Computed example of a mutant assay.
Amino acid sequence: MGVKLEVFRMTLYLAFPVAMFWISNQAEWFEDYVILRKRELWPPEKEGQHQEIEEFKERMRKQQEEKFLRIAQQNS
């Protein structure tokens, strides 16, 4: 019984990682699980959202420039 048990255990030890690797590399599983989960956590940007972010960055940059100009004029 010892040899049969060892062969069974070795088969199990080798089959489990190979099966997990095979399952996790299936394209259908990847798309169904990983990509949909990613979209659920981080939804794609809405149209116009990028423009709003760029406008916000521009307003912040102008405010910083104005602040630095006021500080420079006060120190002169």
Rank of each mutant, 00 (worst) to 15 (best):
G2N: 08
V3D: 06
V3Q: 05
V3G: 00
K4T: 12
L5E: 01
E6K: 12
E6N: 07
V7D: 05
V7E: 07
V7C: 07
V7Y: 02
V7A: 11
F8P: 00
F8E: 08
R9T: 07
R9Y: 08
M10Q: 15
M10A: 12
T11F: 11
T11M: 11
T11R: 04
L12F: 14
L12Y: 13
Y13P: 01
Y13F: 14
Y13Q: 09
L14F: 08
A15C: 07
F16Q: 05
V18L: 15
A19D: 06
M20Y: 13
M20N: 09
M20F: 13
M20R: 14
M20E: 06
W22D: 04
W22C: 04
I23V: 15
S24Y: 11
S24I: 12
S24Q: 09
S24G: 13
N25M: 11
N25P: 01
N25S: 14
N25R: 02
N25V: 03
Q26L: 10
Q26S: 10
Q26C: 08
E28H: 06
E28N: 07
W29E: 00
W29P: 00
W29M: 02
F30N: 03
F30C: 01
F30R: 03
D32C: 03
V34W: 05
V34N: 02
V34P: 00
I35H: 00
L36F: 10
R37Y: 06
R37I: 01
R37A: 11
R37M: 10
K38Q: 10
K38P: 00
K38Y: 14
K38D: 07
E40I: 02
E40L: 10
L41Y: 03
P43W: 04
P43C: 02
P43T: 01
P44Q: 01
P44E: 02
E45W: 08
K46Y: 02
K46L: 05
K46M: 12
E47D: 13
E47V: 13
E47K: 04
G48W: 05
G48C: 03
G48I: 01
Q49N: 06
Q49S: 13
Q51D: 11
Q51L: 13
E52I: 00
I53Q: 12
I53S: 08
E54C: 03
E54Y: 06
E54Q: 11
E55T: 05
E55R: 14
F56A: 13
F56W: 13
F56S: 10
K57R: 15
K57M: 08
E58P: 01
E58S: 05
E58N: 06
E58F: 09
R59Y: 04
M60G: 05
M60P: 04
R61C: 04
K62F: 09
Q63Y: 09
Q63D: 07
Q64M: 09
E65I: 14
E66S: 02
E66A: 08
E66W: 06
K67F: 14
L69T: 07
L69I: 13
I71H: 10
I71G: 04
A72G: 07
Q73W: 12
Q73E: 14
Q73N: 09
Q74G: 12
N75E: 12
S76F: 12
